[in-house]
Amino acid sequence: MLIREIVLRCAEISQIRTIYFGGGTPTVLSNESFSAVMRTFYDNFEFHPDAEITVEANPVTIQGDYDTLLLLKQLGVNRISLGVQSFCDEVLKSLGRLHSKADAREAIRRVSEIYPNFSLDLMYAIPGQSMGMWQETVNEALSYNPAHISAYELTPEEHTPLWDDIKAGKIQITDEDITIEMYEFLTSTLKIAGFDHYEISNYALRDRQCQHNLNYWRRGLYTGVGAAAHSHVAVDGVIKRYSNAANITAYTEAINNGTLPIVDELIVTESEAERERIFLGLRTSYGVHFENIPKAAVELLTAGLIEINGNIITLTEKGFLVSNFCIGKLI
């Protein structure tokens, strides 16, 4: 099904610069299927010589599977992103993760042997996670010499068990002051280790920024394949964002009919595009170019939340912490 969609999409893409296989890919796709998908890409598209091909993996499935890791490498995959989250079993349990810290360690060992360019996902402000636990996790992550780290604050989403437990008062969310301390520990520690805080929640060693994600933040075009995947495309000069049907039946039906399973298509107007440019740009350390610096910038500058270099505004570390507030003022 995926292969048929990829073929259907040929017209949209001139050259592939990055591919990102999202959550759980090696588990869902058998080695044979994965090979077939990759072959379809190679057969139908031209690749950029430095194309970045990332596979997102979780520690449980990848740790014992040395063969798969080798196969992926042979098929051209050159970057692995591992959803480690934490090196503390108590915290992993609280998150409802299936892997233990031992699984995580084993997975990293295997991955790092084959892929020098690997990234670790970490999470903080998790109920039950102390400052000490977080410090240990960050330090241990650094000990494996990853090329890249993504770190998010736990955000309880509506309609999840965690949300319900918080509402019911069964679980206490992490205190604001502790969350800020965790963020500050993370940024200062990674800085000393030579990481560039190039996006609000992403850190990379020199030249190891995730090219795929940078493309999102630079408002580049991309094509998402598979159910519920999002795309940002230009059709006859019209910029559109849309997603594929999340419903598998609807998705399959459309592909079988030789059509694209598009839902929620949105034409991006010029002013919307401009707001996208500002808010996405401000999320990165590269900032945003303003023809005219907005009046509100003065207040933010004196508060130390932004820096202005010529016509480019960038958020400071302090500004990243209150990014919505700053973006709201500048948008």
Binding site: Y152, T155, H230, S243, L321
Partner: peptide, 20 residues
């Protein structure tokens, strides 16, 4: 003192823009 530090990738852009 802080907003939530969350991810924002391809599928989050439109929703995030509307929120802002």
């Amino acid at each position: 003192r802080k907003d939530v530090i969350a991810k924002c990738y391809g599928g989050d852009i439109t929703r995030k823009r509307k929120l802002l």
